[in-house]
Design a binder for these strands. Structure first.
Lengths: 200, 200
DNA sequence: GATTAAGTCAACCCGTTGGTTGAAAACAAC
DNA sequence: GTTGTTTTCAACCAACGGGTTGACTTAATC
């Protein structure tokens, strides 16, 4: 660091940019919280990762907890755009699996276990359940399954590389936190769902 | 260590019983660790729950970490007896779901996320994969699925009430940590698996 | 050039936490 | 009663972690 450049102050290259540092802190926090969970992360580590002084996190977010809450709410927007349009089940599942690789995803998993924050957007869940029901009505999925519990099972299965990170690695011998694994796993899931519908 | 061969008063009525207090501490620790995860649990809380003085956990286990490790290894025996005999897939899944309700199960979920300890017994996993492969050969399951990834998906789905505790509650409006929920959910899962085999 | 905002630095405060110590009590066995 | 083990109690310690303070730099704005 300490790159000294005197240029015209185009906003993208500013030396002093509160928005940017805020974003950096948030990013670093997501990584740290996602890796170790709330209780085990140290604000010092967050600051270090963001390449920023530790007191800036108090300055911008009012402390560790404020930072966490800010992050917690942010994924609702992620969920919102994810459910924005009805898509084939393959795609939805692939999206689920994809979030597995993100810091946000890891954070979501932690908060789901800890139960500290409502982890998932309610509207998002309702939408998904409705879509599953529709697929049942269309004969794409067995009609005797409870759509809510089915959604739960599918979400859990999709986030296996995250929630069962260690076990996944034990079973496959690979690192489940790679794009390659995610893709392969997503394919298997859509294959599985296709078998559910009866279509071979 | 310190094997007590004296056989006089019924151990259940003893006022002083090192074995019993050890067990109590372990039990309390499983509950606390399972509820909040390692980093967030306080040794004081463990001692309080066990109804025991706090320095006894140092006395018997050499501190918080020793206690945790002792617990971590203990579930391998649980897994071992779970895989002891080949059973129908329904039953295996139901067993998975059942562990969801136990403190051991919660602890397993935490350690899986934190990645601190090899969470699952390797032999257990191998056995399960082999059994899935056998079921595929028997036509009970689609043959084009990778048995390892299938096991992963099934385990993840089965432990949804645990790993997606909060989300499960959001979807169903119920508390997923009840025997009733576990039973209902297990039924749905076996129904789902039955659909996989093609049998309606 | 002066002012203001953005950010750094080092030291410090203070509550918490895991762990320890050195008693003494309660109990069991002899 | 004596002895040895189990357990409690109260106080204490050192380390840590989150947060704060105040003085000091550096950049953008006017």
């Amino acid at each position: 660091m300490a790159v000294d450049q005197r240029r015209s102050p185009t906003a993208s290259e500013r030396k002093r940019d509160p928005e940017r540092t805020r974003a950096r802190i948030l990013e670093a926090a997501a990584a740290e919280f996602g890796a170790k969970g709330y209780a085990a992360t140290r604000t010092t580590d967050i600051a270090a990762r963001a390449g920023v002084n530790k007191q800036l996190i108090s300055y911008y977010f009012g402390g560790k907890e404020g930072l966490y809450k800010e992050l917690a709410t942010s994924w609702h927007t992620t969920a919102a755009e994810m459910a924005h349009e009805a898509q084939p089940l393959d795609v939805v599942l692939a999206s689920f699996v994809a979030t597995t690789l993100t810091d946000q995803g890891r954070l979501w998993a932690w908060s789901n276990l800890a139960g500290d924050t409502p982890p998932t957007d309610e509207a998002f869940l309702r939408t998904q359940v409705d879509q599953l029901r529709a697929r049942q009505a269309a004969g794409e999925l067995p009609a005797d399954l409870d759509p809510g519990l089915l959604l739960l099972a599918l979400m859990a299965a999709a986030s296996a590389p995250l929630t069962l990170r260690h076990t996944a690695s034990q079973i496959t011998g690979e690192d489940p936190a790679t794009p390659e694994f995610a893709q392969k796993y997503a394919e298997q899931l859509s294959l599985l769902v296709r078998h559910l519908s009866g279509r071979t």
